[in-house]
Design a protein around this nucleic acid. Structure first.
Lengths: 208, 208
DNA sequence: TCCGTATCCTGACACTGTCAAGATAAGAGG
DNA sequence: CCTCTTATCTTGACAGTGTCAGGATACGGA
C-alpha cells in the first residue's frame, strides 16, 4: 500500500498553509514512509532521516515513537508479517477447499507477497535489523509459521520433512523470484507463471 | 565534525613501525578483511573504513584497488561465487556417480556454503550492493547457474519446472537454515540433518 | 483556566563513504 | 648511480547518517 505523497495532509479544517506542530498520527505515517523508503532505496539504502523527511517531520521525531531505527524496522516487520499472512489468505479464499489446494494457494500467496514487496520480504526473512525478541514481532512471525504447519498437517503430512519441503520450495521460489534471479519462471506472463508455480509446488506436497 | 579533536596518536619514532608503506598484496588482504567484516558485523553493519582498519591501512586505501565500497563487494561476490561452486564440487566428489546422486550432492554443497558463510551467501543472492553488470561477477554467477542446469539435464529433467523445482528447494533450505529460521531441521546433529536434507531434496528431482 | 506531559524541534557528536591533494616507494631508462 | 614516471598509500576535508541532550509546543484533563 504505497501511498502517493502529493502534498501536505492537513486535517480538513486545520490551517491550510502551516503544518501543525503535532502531526496527529505520526506513528502510522512513519510506518508508511518507512515502507516507501525500503521500496525506493532498498534494504541497504534505508535511512531514518530520509524516512522522517518523507513524513514531513524533523530527523529526531521518529525516536519518540520507535526509539531508534531498529525499533521502527521491528514494528514494520511485525506489520509485514501480518500482511504476509493476509496475502496467503487472499489466495486461499479463491482456491478449492481441499487441503492440498489450500496448501498450494498459501504457497502462491507467499510468492505474491515477495514479488509485490520484495524489500519488505527481505526485512522479514533475511535482515538482521528487526529485533526478533520483540514480543509483537515474535508473535507475528510465529503466526506465519503456525499457519504453515497447520496446513501441512491437514494436507496429510505429519513429519518434519513434509513441513520443510513445502516451506523450502515456496520460500526458495519467492526469494529467487523477488531477487530477479529465476528469470526462466519470472519472465513468464502472470497466468502461465502461476500455472508453472502450481506444478512446482505440488512436487513438494506429502504423498497421498 | 571534529576539527579540534586532540590527536593523541604518538607516531613512535623509537618504536619500530615495521609496517611498510606499501603493503605488498593489499588487494587480497582487503578481500579477506572484507569477508571477516561481513562475518563479524553482518551485511548491514559492513563498513569500508573498518575493513581498511582490519587490513592495517588507511581509510582511503581501498579506493585505489576497488574504486568504492560497491567495487570491493563486487569483487568479493565474484570470489564468493567461485567458492560457492567449489562447495558443491566438494560434495559431488564424495557422492555416488549417478546423475541423481550428483544433483542431490550439489544441493547439499549449496546448503553447506550457506551454513558456513551465511553473510557471504546473502551477498551473492540477496544484496543489492554488488554490481552484477560487472563482467567478472556476471561470469561467476552464470557459471553457478549453468552448473545447475547441466546437472538437472543429466538427471533426466529437461524442462523449466524441473530446473526451478530443484533450484528452489535447495535455495529455500539454504536460505532458511542460514537465517536460523528452520530450526526443526537446523537443530538436528549434522549427520541426521544431512539425511533429512537428502530426503527433502529428492522430492524435487525429476520423476524417472 | 492552568498545568503536566506527550509530542516534536534544534543542535551536537561520533560515525560513515568519497573526493582531492600530498607523501612515499618501486621500477624503468639513461 | 641517478633521475623520472607511475603506482601505491596517507592525510584532510565534506556531506550524510544514527543517536543523544535539551528546549519548544500544544493536547488533555484538573
Amino acid at each position: 500500500m504505497t501511498q502517493d505523497t502529493p502534498h501536505l495532509r492537513p486535517k480538513p479544517e486545520a490551517a491550510p498553509d502551516t503544518r501543525p506542530y503535532h502531526h496527529g498520527d505520526l506513528r502510522a505515517a512513519l510506518l508508511v514512509a518507512a515502507e516507501d523508503e525500503l521500496a525506493d532505496r532498498g534494504m541497504e539504502g534505508f535511512s531514518l532521516r530520509s524516512v522522517a523527511k518523507r513524513a514531513g517531520v524533523s530527523h529526531a521525531a521518529p525516536a519518540h515513537h520507535f526509539g531508534d531505527a531498529k525499533g521502527l524496522l521491528t514494528a514494520l516487520a511485525a506489520e509485514g508479517f501480518r500482511q504476509f499472512l493476509a496475502a496467503q489468505a487472499a489466495r486461499e479464499a479463491v482456491a478449492a477447499p481441499d487441503p492440498a489446494s489450500q496448501l498450494v494457494a498459501a504457497g502462491l500467496g507467499y510468492i505474491d507477497f515477495a514479488l509485490s514487496r520484495p524489500t519488505l520480504f527481505r526485512l522479514l526473512w533475511q535482515s538482521e535489523r528487526p529485533d526478533f525478541s520483540n514480543p509483537d514481532l515474535g508473535q507475528a512471525a510465529r503466526a506465519a509459521y503456525s499457519h504453515l504447519v497447520d496446513q501441512v498437517t491437514e494436507a496429510g503430512g505429519g513429519n518434519t520433512a513434509d513441513e520443510a519441503a513445502v516451506w523450502a520450495i515456496a520460500h526458495g521460489l519467492a526469494d529467487l523470484l523477488a531477487a530477479g534471479r529465476m528469470m526462466s519462471v519470472g519472465s513468464l506472463p502472470a497466468e502461465a507463471r502461476d500455472a508453472m508455480l502450481v506444478t512446482i509446488i505440488r512436487r513438494a506436497l506429502p504423498a497421498p
